[in-house]
């Protein structure tokens, strides 16, 4: 278990340290959302209607940004060899990486999501649910994204490949996350959608590390 904490601490330190991972994702998130009024027109009524959904779309895209670095740098500089010979199996390494990805990218994006949605015209009473759905959804985005990151190891232009691999896997969280907010805004029962979002995140966190570890072993051999 000690090895797991060593790994998690390092991943967190590297994400917050140089390279500005979370800041880059946040800036991208805000910039994407800023384009929306330019694309659909600045009419407040129209914007308010699409604000929660657009915030979720921008969130999914912003979550892609730092995925390329999740395994690729460790693969290129030989760290992955060392990680494969560590005190805990690669599955635990992958879990630590996914968790760190969620905490350092998903959490800041979840904090920014209500701000972005409100700026686009979403009602203030939606704010808690937008934050909650973005936070819970971020878990699924981090772990399914990690699978794409591990699968693309060793390929040229991994970043583009990750996006192509991962965006279909992002469909369920986008549906449930934006769906929960729409339901709440429309006065409907929003619990099922949020429950499904949480279930997707937990399933991704439980199964994703196995897929990531298998993909890493394959890339090393």
């Amino acid at each position: 278990m000690n090895g797991f904490w060593v790994m998690l601490r390092r991943e967190m330190a590297m994400a917050w340290g140089r390279g500005g991972g979370p800041l880059l994702a946040l800036t991208f998130f805000v910039a994407t959302a800023t384009l929306l009024p330019l694309a659909v027109g600045a009419s407040p009524a129209r914007l308010a209607a699409v604000a929660p959904g657009s915030a979720w779309l921008a969130l999914a895209l912003a979550s892609l940004l730092s995925l390329e670095r999740l395994f690729e740098r460790d693969y290129e500089d030989g760290t992955l060899d060392l990680l494969a010979l560590g005190p805990v199996p690669l599955e635990a390494v992958a879990f630590a990486k996914g968790l760190a990805q969620w905490l350092t990218n998903g959490a800041p994006l979840a904090l920014a999501a209500p701000v972005v949605a409100v700026a686009l015209g979403a009602e203030l009473r939606l704010v808690p649910l937008i934050f909650l759905s973005a936070l819970i959804g971020g878990l699924g985005l981090a772990f399914t994204g990690g699978i794409g990151a591990a699968l693309s190891l060793g390929s040229k232009r991994g970043g583009v490949l990750i996006a192509v691999l991962v965006l279909p896997l992002f469909a369920p969280p986008v549906i449930f996350g934006a769906g929960a907010i729409e339901a709440f805004a429309g006065g409907l029962d929003w619990h099922p959608a949020l429950g499904l979002l949480a279930a997707y995140g937990l399933a991704a966190a439980a199964l994703g590390p196995f897929a990531m570890a298998a993909a890493c072993r394959n890339a090393l051999s």
Binding site: G17, R18, G19, D74, D77, G78, L82, L85, G86, P87
Partner: peptide
């Protein structure tokens, strides 16, 4: 698996150090 996770050091051409740390 146990032998490798506790008893083996591999030092290859790449040392796994991050350039900016």
């Amino acid at each position: 698996e146990d032998a490798r996770s506790q008893g083996v050091h591999l030092l290859g051409h790449q040392d796994g150090f991050k350039a900016t740390r």
